[in-house]
Design a protein around this nucleic acid. Structure first.
Lengths: 187, 187
DNA sequence: TTTGTTTTGGGACGATCGTTCAGGTAGTTT
DNA sequence: AAACTACCTGAACGATCGTCCCAAAACAAA
């Protein structure tokens, strides 16, 4: 006999868990991982302080859960970008350039949060699979006849993003376009 | 009349300043920026706690000074790498691959510290010139007939480094070599 | 030696931190 | 209804935090 009705208590708990994760992500986007404390997260989510310790055994657990969730979103985003490009029959240069420009412009805070995940993953091996997820998605979806060229492409995307983060003003899609073209051009 | 003999007091102070910066860098390499406090830095340097507040008006100032110093070292390192490659008459692929392998292997902690500078610079505009310094050194030293190819090269280096940081084990110079070759190959 | 400047370092203050705990509420099962 | 489980939350503890204060020491200039 399968349980169709879920436990209302667990449902509420699960909902609050995601609310806390979302609040944590907002704080990371705004102030970085350094700004994450039990109290700031609770205030951002509008819940009492102890709620974070109840649902996450420690602050570290909350951070790990948040950044894993963040990485999952990034992976699905990459997935749909590829899907979009394919449905248009393009090789993807335009879509990639647009995605990069958006990541460095309106979604700049989110991009910074994602690279804080990278650095946290460098120190915490448990986070590495999550940090590599978008790389894996790309690797599994894209046909790569040239292994080396594909690795260069992946590295180039990461480099463009992290360098774009320290530009005084974010580069536009038009500025990024030739570089992305170069990265995608076969030889 | 020019003062030839420096003030002994200021000399001592300057020495301790650099000691504090070096201690801070060691802590960042080991535990990340999150591990930097007045007390941990002072303990690492073997000086009393208040020494950090005396020589640096705030913790933030200490961090900024440390990461600027770190960036300067990185820039001179890049400078000498290019110089070394030139004296051998090579195009630099081997030297670059070796440098990357070293950055991701024995000097992994230092590399992580450098990318924490990147992320800090993304949030603090005052740090951006320091974070861009090694890029500027490369740009000024290397003749780039192809602007786009050069930008791809710079991005590729950054991408290889940050992706190498989340690998379960650091890539070797041999593994990196074909990718670096591809990045440097003119077309 | 006297006076002034810079560095040193111990002690302490208030704020904030992560986490614990116990009592209370809501929902499920019997 | 009673027993049980899961979630909620206010209060509080000890630890650690950044920073300030002030007297002592080291050094330079007079």
């Amino acid at each position: 006999m399968v349980k169709l009705q879920v436990d209302g208590r667990k449902a509420r708990g699960e909902k609050r868990r995601t609310e806390l994760i979302e609040a944590t992500l907002r704080i990371i986007e705004r102030d970085g991982v350094a700004g994450v404390t039990h109290r700031t997260v609770a205030a951002e989510a509008g819940v009492p302080t102890t709620s974070t310790t109840y649902h996450f055994s420690s602050l570290d657990d909350l951070l790990v859960a948040t950044l894993i969730s963040c990485a999952r979103d990034m992976a699905t985003e990459v997935y749909w970008m590829i899907d979009r490009a394919r449905s248009r029959g393009s090789r993807g240069a335009e879509e990639v350039a647009a995605l990069l420009a958006e990541a460095l412009g309106p979604r700049r805070g989110r991009t910074m949060a994602e690279y804080e995940l990278y650095l946290l993953a460098a120190r915490k091996p448990e986070l590495r699979p999550a940090a590599r997820r978008w790389l894996d998605v790309l690797t599994s979806m894209v046909r790569h006849d040239d292994e080396v060229a594909f690795r260069v492409f992946l590295a180039g995307i990461d480099g463009l993003l992290i360098q774009g983060l320290i530009d005084d003003e974010p580069p536009s899609a038009e500025e990024l376009r030739p570089v992305v073209d170069y990265l995608l051009k076969p030889r």
